[in-house]
Amino acid sequence: MNTDLTQHHRESIWKALSRVARPDSRFHWDFSSFICDFEGSDLATERVRELPAWREASRVFVTPDNSTELLRRAALADGKSLLVTTYGIRRGFIQLDPADVPPGEISYAATLDGIDRLGRPVTLTALAGGPPLRLLVTGGSAISRNGIRFGKGHGYFDLEWAILSEIGLAHEGSEIVDVVHDCQVVDVDLVGAEHDVPVDWIVTPTGTIGIPDVQRRPGRVLWDLLPGTEHEHLPPIEELRAMRTRSTS
């Protein structure tokens, strides 16, 4: 990926995004620390709900981004289970079923605080062997028109996709949606790096963009790239490592 090109786009996107973004309760306007919610995220949410893959899914993976909060709420309202990572994947995965949400609290349940309080932590061992996910939804900093995400924070979803693929929850039948504001879609084609996961749909407040001919390799964790990085000791990575050791011994 041409990093000069993406740096230029990153800066102009952040300028435009600042006008439509909502601050985070803790991180304020520091976009390097979170994926922001934006004006029109409700419209983008409604567009995702119209996708066939949404209707078919009984459980959806959604990233813990501010821009996907309304979508998490919609999942619960539509009777779907939520699989969400904790912020920064620091405490692994959490599953939240609609039955676990007290009446009148689905807005709270969709927030990161609510997911922590009402959901239950799930190990990869518990998840493995379950039905594969029909749909995964992420937010993002920026995305090319051919579906390659870039900018701060995008690495987490790539890792989540890889982990879920390794345990069979994500596969060729899974569709990936990126929810962004229009100003975050860049009118260029990018070639992704080995671990970059191209998406099937870009959904903005004004449009639903299907990416034709998505070339996506089976997701896998790139173990050689992990040592020395902050991802090395994340709980699901540690768990995957142990699962691999058990299966080879």
Partner: peptide
């Protein structure tokens, strides 16, 4: 505008630019 002091949970991307270089823990 900077993050609250001492924020450690920065969502940074994996080392794309440094592919091929394995960072040994020091």
């Amino acid at each position: 505008m900077s993050a609250p002091p001492g924020t450690t949970a920065e969502r940074s991307s994996p080392p794309v630019a440094r592919r091929g270089v394995v960072r040994a823990p020091t």
